[in-house]
C-alpha cells in the first residue's frame, strides 16, 4: 500500500519494449499497439474502479455542499460550506472525534506493545510456534459482526463474563460495572475489543520483520556480550523501526475507521455518548436522511486521516514497507 516501488518500475517495461525492436514494424506503430494493449488490460477494471470508488469520492464532496434532497421530486439546496460549519459547532461531532481519539489512545499503543512482545517471544526456535501464531491470529480473521456481538455479551452488566470474573470471582470491584452504560467504560470495552481483535495482525507483521533482521548482526552483538534485552534495543528495534512506523499509520487509520463494533455494541449510546465519527455519520445519513451533513462528516474524517498519515510518514521518514 506504500508507493515505494512504483516510481522506478518502468525499467522492465522499457527493457521488454526494447527487445521487440527486432520486428520489422516502425517504432511508432509498435508503441501504439503497446499503448492500445495496455488500455485494453486496464479498461474493465479501471472503469469499475472509477465508477464505484473514484466517482463516489468526488460525489461525496459535492453532496456535502448541499442540503441533499432524498425524496424524488424535491430540490436540493446549495449550502456552500454550511454543513462543515455545522459540524464545527456540533458538540456531538466533537465528542465523536474525542471518542475516536480515545479509542486510538487505547488500541494503538496496546497493539504495538503487545504485538511486539508476542513477536519477540515467538522469534526463536521453540515448541508449538506455528500453533501460537495461528491462535493469536484467529480473532483477526473472525468477522467484526460476530466478535462485536460476543463482546457485547461478555460486557453485559448482570450475568456477563467480564463482571463475573472481576466481581464475583476475583472481587476486584465492589459492584458490577455498568460497562456499556457510561461513556468512558463503554469506550474502554470497545478499545479492549479492538486490541483483542487486532493484536494478532501487528504480531504477524512484527514477526515477519524480526525474522528479516540479519542473524549476523545478532551474533556480532552476542559476541560483544550484550544481553538479550540490550541486543533487542540495539539491533532489532532500529532494524524494524520503519515497520513500527508503518504499523502505527495503519493502526491510526484503522482506529478512525471503527464502526461495526460501535454500531453493534453500543449503537453510539447511551444517548450519543459513545458515537465515533463514522457511527455519527451513519446515523445522520440513514436515520435522519441528512445526507449532506453525513457526507461533510465523512469528508472531514478523510481529511484527518490524510493529514495524519502524511505527517506520520514524514515523521518516521520514508517507511520501507514491511516487504
Amino acid at each position: 500500500m506504500l508507493p515505494t516501488r512504483s516510481t522506478h518500475s518502468s525499467s522492465s517495461a522499457r527493457k521488454g519494449g526494447a527487445r521487440t525492436a527486432g520486428s520489422p514494424r516502425p517504432p511508432s506503430a509498435r508503441r501504439r499497439r503497446e499503448i492500445l494493449h495496455a488500455y485494453l488490460f486496464l479498461l474493465p477494471g479501471f472503469a469499475l474502479f472509477a465508477l464505484t470508488i473514484l466517482y463516489p469520492i468526488v460525489r461525496a464532496f459535492q453532496i456535502s455542499l448541499f442540503h441533499w434532497a432524498i425524496v424524488p421530486g424535491t430540490a436540493s439546496t446549495f449550502l456552500g460550506l454550511q454543513n462543515y460549519a455545522h459540524a464545527l459547532h456540533d458538540p456531538i461531532f466533537w465528542r465523536a472525534l474525542a471518542n475516536s481519539g480515545f479509542y486510538m489512545a487505547i488500541t494503538v499503543p496496546s497493539q504495538i506493545v503487545l504485538g511486539l512482545l508476542a513477536a519477540v517471544m515467538l522469534d526463536a526456535r521453540m515448541p508449538a510456534r506455528a500453533i501460537f501464531r495461528t491462535l493469536y491470529y484467529l480473532p483477526v480473521v473472525t468477522s467484526w459482526v460476530v466478535v462485536s456481538l460476543v463482546f457485547r455479551y461478555l460486557f453485559i452488566t448482570e450475568g456477563g463474563l467480564v463482571n463475573w470474573i472481576l466481581h464475583d470471582t476475583l472481587h476486584l470491584v465492589p459492584t458490577n460495572i455498568n460497562w456499556l452504560g457510561a461513556r468512558w467504560s463503554a469506550m474502554v470495552a470497545l478499545g479492549i475489543l479492538g486490541t483483542w481483535k487486532g493484536v494478532g495482525w501487528s504480531m504477524v507483521v512484527f514477526l515477519a520483520a524480526l525474522q528479516g533482521v540479519p542473524k549476523a548482526l545478532h551474533e556480532a552483538a552476542a559476541v560483544d556480550g550484550a544481553r538479550a534485552w540490550d541486543r533487542f534495543v540495539a539491533v532489532s528495534l532500529p532494524a524494524i523501526r520503519p515497520v513500527v512506523a508503518f504499523v502505527t499509520v495503519l493502526l491510526v487509520i484503522g482506529g478512525f475507521n471503527v464502526f461495526i463494533s460501535v454500531y453493534l455494541m453500543t449503537g453510539g449510546g447511551p444517548v450519543d455518548q459513545t458515537q465515533v465519527l463514522l457511527s455519527y455519520m451513519y446515523r445522520q445519513a440513514f436515520s435522519f436522511l441528512d445526507f449532506g451533513y453525513g457526507s461533510a462528516i465523512s469528508f472531514l474524517l478523510t481529511l484527518i486521516v490524510f493529514v495524519i498519515s502524511l505527517a506520520q510518514m514524514r515523521l518516521f521518514r520514508r517507511p520501507a514497507g514491511a516487504s
Binding site: F155, T157, N178, A186
Partner: peptide, 8 residues
C-alpha cells in the same frame, strides 16, 4: 434506564 444495551 440509562443503559438499555448492556444491562439486564
Amino acid at each position: 434506564i440509562v443503559n438499555p444495551n448492556g444491562g439486564l
